[in-house]
């Protein structure tokens, strides 16, 4: 079955890397995966979006059409993409200002704060978010997520990022949907 992820936030938050790691973890599990991206001309601070499509089938269209999971780390990203959600689940950082009119299932989790307080580095919020997405979707085994993180993060930061991944998985295990 085709499962679509949209990871959105601000340029520099590392969501592209999180998307790449998710796609690679799926491939380690013998699934098909395609990762695409869109970004503004700014290197930092502009809008940033990564999409991952995972399927046991052949993937013809590479982009998300109606995401099963939307991750939004900023209010701006939430405003851009939450409205278009039909069937999926929205996962936001706790700092995101939610739209009371939006009836889509939504989970708010302290992703950015966990990166700072629990892991100790704000920059690994992307990998905390990856842990959250992996844990809630259950699409890939945590062991494959770990292997993919080790493959893709900068050398010397593996332990830090694995800690971030586990913190994300932990957050996911206690997550409650706000109906």
């Amino acid at each position: 079955m085709r499962v679509e992820f949209r990871l959105s936030g601000s340029g520099g938050q590392g969501l592209l890397l999180a998307g790449i790691v998710l796609a690679e973890a799926a491939i380690l599990e013998d699934k098909n995966a395609v990762q695409t991206q869109s970004y503004g001309p700014e290197a930092r601070g502009g809008s940033s979006k990564a999409e991952v499509v995972i399927c046991d089938c052949d993937i013809d269209y590479p982009k998300a059409t109606d995401p099963d999971f939307l991750l939004a780390l900023t209010t701006e990203a939430y405003r851009s993409y939450a409205k278009g959600m039909k069937k999926g689940l929205i996962i936001v950082d706790s700092s995101v200002v939610l739209d009371p009119e939006n009836k889509t299932r939504t989970i708010a989790l302290p992703i950015l704060q966990t990166a700072t307080d629990v892991v100790g580095k704000k920059v690994v919020a992307n990998i905390v978010a990856l842990g959250v997405l992996g844990g809630i979707s259950g699409i890939v085994a945590p062991a494959n997520l770990e292997a993919a993180v080790k493959n893709r993060v900068p050398k010397g930061t593996e332990d830090l990022n694995l800690k971030a991944l586990r913190a994300g998985l932990e957050l996911a295990s206690h997550a409650k949907v706000q109906e």
Partner: peptide
Amino acid sequence: EVIGHMREK
């Protein structure tokens, strides 16, 4: 741009 930046298996 899409073909060039897309990652797949």
